[in-house]
């Protein structure tokens, strides 16, 4: 399987595992994320404060905070 990963300094998103439920998008306090074509996308990584709430509640382990 091709690994479809978006790696930034702050967040990593694995599109292969994402099911597009939108939990991370809703509970992100800084509106960093959105759902596009049923997958999570990073909208504005500069706003990310690496609080980890996306990682904490992602049921599919498809998003996590990097370097923490």
């Amino acid at each position: 399987m091709n690994i479809n990963e978006t790696v930034t300094d702050k967040l990593v998103v694995n599109e292969n595992w994402c099911k597009g439920c939108g939990i991370c998008v809703k509970f992100c306090p800084k509106n960093v994320l959105k759902i596009e074509n049923e997958k999570v996308k990073i909208v504005d990584i500069d706003k990310c404060i690496q609080c980890g709430l996306c990682e904490l509640r992602c049921p599919d382990y498809a998003i996590y905070v990097r370097g923490k």
Binding site: N16, W17, K19, G20, E55, C58, P59, D60, Y61, V65
Partner: peptide
């Protein structure tokens, strides 16, 4: 995957079978 998932999960079995948004993964 993240450090915790890499350490404690059988990552070759992921993604898991549960429905989108199922709380069981959390």
């Amino acid at each position: 995957p993240s450090e915790i998932v890499n350490k404690y999960f059988r990552t070759n079995k992921l993604p898991q079978i549960w429905c989108p948004g199922c709380g069981h993964g959390i």
